[in-house]
């Protein structure tokens, strides 16, 4: 692993007004580091990388890094990414979305991008809440949890993002948490190199809003929760539905060859 300072100087925008907007203890920074390390490791030039995001805390990521970057409209990152990739296939197109962004307002685009299998590496930072707007429930907020928009407890079952994307036809589907940084590094690298639509769900924490409602007080506690509730996919295959209830299954869930949109 390269020295952090070297990567910071190479990939962060020196002209940008730091500090970033994220709260102390947020998982977005951990993901950003992992993404930079993976891009550096795979060896893309900065000119060929395009980072496309939607709206939300995690979608502020592209502004900090020295690539071709677009901060689009809420839920629509994948549609912009599709246009960029098809117009200039030599570019490495990456999308960064949050859970509300990708599977609530942008859910239709997510399933169609997976179905179409355009070569886009997409990362969904799932902190189970709308952080930027003040802690409303999202399609991944656990059942029964109280948030600002469900003060009597969330009545809606949540989405399993990976299953949705797998069913829609993605070539590569994986999950990690921001606690498991080495796994995260590996999965990002695999997704970047995949020919076809790749999606990695990155389970993260919203310290400011999520923690309050989940009853977890500190970033450390929230990451410990990620650690204690994760099960590697190899082990999960031996367990039943009941034993996996509420668990985070990590690792490569799907890796298959499908003709990409461009090859057809």
């Amino acid at each position: 692993m390269k020295e952090t300072a070297e990567l910071v100087h190479k990939y962060l925008r020196s002209t940008k007004k730091f500090p970033h907007i994220w709260c102390a203890g947020c998982g977005n920074g951990i993901f950003m580091q992992a993404l930079i390390r993976a891009i550096d490791r795979v060896g893309y030039s900065k000119d060929e990388v395009v980072l496309v995001s939607g709206i939300g805390c995690s979608s502020r990521l592209p502004v900090y890094v020295d690539f071709n970057t677009v901060h689009t409209t809420h839920g629509r990152a994948l549609t912009f990414a599709t246009g960029i990739k098809l117009a200039k296939p030599r570019l490495k197109v990456i999308t960064i979305m949050g859970d509300g962004d990708a599977i609530a307002i942008g859910g239709n685009h997510l399933i169609h991008a997976a179905r179409r299998n355009v070569e886009i590496a997409s990362f969904i930072i799932n902190n189970q809440i709308y952080g930027m707007t003040g802690g409303q429930c999202s399609p991944t907020t656990p059942l029964g949890v109280k948030t600002t928009s469900c003060p009597y407890g969330n009545l809606e079952p949540n989405f399993d993002i990976c299953r949705v994307v797998e069913a829609a036809g993605a070539a590569f589907v994986a999950r990690s948490t921001v606690y498991h940084t080495r796994l995260l590094d590996r999965l990002i690298g695999k997704a970047l190199k995949k020919k076809g639509f790749a999606m990695v769900e990155v389970v993260s924490q919203c310290v400011t809003y999520g923690g309050r409602y989940l009853g977890l007080d500190s970033p450390a506690e929230m990451m410990k929760w990620q650690k204690d509730n994760s099960i590697p996919v190899e082990k999960a295959r031996e367990l039943g539905e009941a034993e996996l209830e509420g668990k985070i299954v990590t690792g490569v869930l799907v890796d298959r060859e499908r003709p990409t949109y461009h090859e057809e």
């Binding site: 677009v70 549609t79 912009f80 599709t82 246009g83 098809l86 200039k88 239709n108």
Partner: peptide, 22 residues
Amino acid sequence: VFIQMEDEIGSMGAVIGASLAG
């Protein structure tokens, strides 16, 4: 390049993306 998108929101997004790519 021609693409039929999943809706008009997506069409407009793809159009802007393609233009950014030149």
